[in-house]
Design a protein around this nucleic acid. Structure first.
Lengths: 333, 333
DNA sequence: CTGAAAGCGCTTACAG
DNA sequence: CTGAAAGCGCTTACAG
């Protein structure tokens, strides 16, 4: 920790005996500056340990070279991986990443967005919890939960296709009594995956029992997954296979089976939409959709960068990440 | 996304018919400004949708109200939880958090620190991968892997105590042939936990066989954990219990046991230093140290905030998070 | 209680 | 090829 203040461009210019404007241009490799001058300036900068002050540059150029990312819970494996992917492409593009955590509270989401606006970030990536109703005041890409006709883009997975793919696979194993353990039917993931299940019931001619659909009320926790699974197992004629719509739900469902003395997949087949961390190390290894959170982050970041560069205002891009099955053993394979 | 530019304080002042200095003070709730003026200014600000420009404020006050955090892998559950804890206390203190990911490459760590310096962050939290050799140029708190006599503080867990606690518990179950699956013996976690195991061997009178210590060479991955466990199991007289020094290692070790047809804990007891995500949902539920990553993040952030406020330059605080056992079933309980 | 002025550290037309 | 000057949007002594 240094007490003395950082050298400024003026200090460098003085040491190199040029004007600050010349020093600025030299350091930017402007072709207008002679090679000898550049050499002098660079030498002076190095000697002084000069580090440009991005705050000043941001103020002057009116662009902060910072992007914001707003997530419900940075501690959750899902979101931390999205952040990783996004961070990687943003940083490559020269943007540092300001992370805001909302704890899924809409109020905190609004505050987070406001803070980001005050920092004059170039743009923002948002996994909404339902907080922001109004049109955002900065270039915004929504991911995970999408918000139609707002922002410059949306990225989420092919939720309907994903659930149908999972059901289809179970159907291929001969199951017709298939249950669904779902998250709260709000926002994109909750509603679309449920819709996917309903479609699958029709498409694949499954037993259309409303009590085969068990949704958690408020959270996507293992606890809700276990509860939902227990309700399924308590039925007069329980399903022979179950689709869970999220990683935590899957883990909870799995442990509920274990506690009920059921073997997976022998007594009950289980597949999951999200692949939990170390899903391949579970007992049994879980059949799920291929993990692509980093890809989602990369894609969302790319959409944002694209929007920042383009001058046109096309309608928001609406991107669906394709789903793919990773077949392990919990399905019966 | 708004095309028109954000209103400035000058715009607010004009609308309220005061000087910008007065507007500034009114919005800061300075006691020097009359209540009626404040009312006018606030009304003008609200009408215009004024949002202070923190970039300008930062330049002027020479403090960015941003903190940096540098981690090897934001996608890893461990680090993402630390970030969550840190983010929470920093944000409460009015600091936004810039996250840098190094992929464990020392070169990227140096670059990350430089970028943070250029952003003139107030201070930084670093989980080093061994990159930064020199004295940091900003207030720095190291966490996870500590760096003595640098920065303003260090936070890590009581690594030696932790391993001893785990061994002691296994010893309580009657085991004397206890193996150790460790991460690379570099940096704090790798070296101190190994040291803890060596001490435990002596203290608890265990079989002191060098081949009971199996370290991974470069990574903390499940793969290395499985390899190390396999080496242990291939021994002439394999251990009856194993301590793993990290979450990924534990999961890899567990799956190696499974593949070898060993039941845990009946055939081999297993305990882990880190508690993996959903460790309670594993089969068997894993006995490990209580998870306290968020606490580590909170503590590191608090140390930083303290250093930022204090004018004194005390020697770096060196904090050890106490460890605690969460007894589940993999140990034989 | 309020205002005019300077200045944080840069970049970038504008001159020469 | 180089420099003097203005200005990004704030805050804060300094006057009054």
């Amino acid at each position: 920790m240094e007490a003395e203040r950082q050298p400024t461009l003026a200090d460098v210019a003085r040491a190199a005996r040029v004007a600050t404007s010349t020093a600025s241009r030299a350091l930017q490799e402007s072709p207008r500056i002679s090679e000898t001058t550049k050499l002098r300036v660079r030498a002076a900068a190095r000697t002084l340990g000069y580090r440009p002050n991005r705050v000043a540059r941001s103020l002057r150029t009116r662009t902060a070279n910072i992007a914001g990312i707003v997530v419900p819970d940075i501690g959750a494996p899902f979101y931390s991986r999205v952040v990783k992917g996004a961070q990687d492409v943003l940083e490559t593009a020269g943007l540092a990443v300001l992370v805001m955590n909302t704890q899924r509270e809409p109020g905190r989401e609004v505050t987070a967005l406001r803070t980001l606006l005050e920092h004059r970030v170039s743009g923002v990536l948002v996994a909404t919890s339902g907080g922001s109703a109004a049109e955002p005041e900065m270039p915004t890409v929504y991911f995970d939960n999408i918000v139609r006709n707002r922002g410059v883009g949306n990225v989420t997975r092919a939720n309907v296709d994903g659930v149908m793919l999972l059901v289809e696979h179970l159907r291929g194993h001969g199951h017709t009594r298939i249950g669904y353990v779902g998250g709260p039917p709000t926002l994109t993931s909750g509603t679309e995956r449920l819709e996917g299940f309903r479609q699958a019931v029709t498409s694949f001619g499954l037993a259309a029992r409303e009590d085969y659909v068990q949704l958690s009320e408020a959270t996507w926790s293992p606890h809700s997954g276990a509860d939902a699974m227990r309700r399924l197992l308590a039925l007069d004629e329980p399903p022979t296979a179950v689709v869970t719509s999220g990683e935590s739900l899957a883990l909870g469902a799995l442990s509920a089976c274990r506690n009920a003395g059921l073997r997976v997949p022998e007594d009950l087949a289980l597949v999951s939409f999200d692949d939990p961390p170390f899903g391949d190390l579970l007992d049994p290894p879980l059949t799920a959709l291929v993990r692509n959170e980093e890809e989602m982050g990369r894609l969302a970041a790319s959409l944002l960068l694209h929007a920042l560069q383009s001058t046109a205002f096309p309608p928001p891009a609406d991107v669906r990440l394709p789903v793919e099955l990773v077949v392990r053993h919990s399905c019966g394979c």
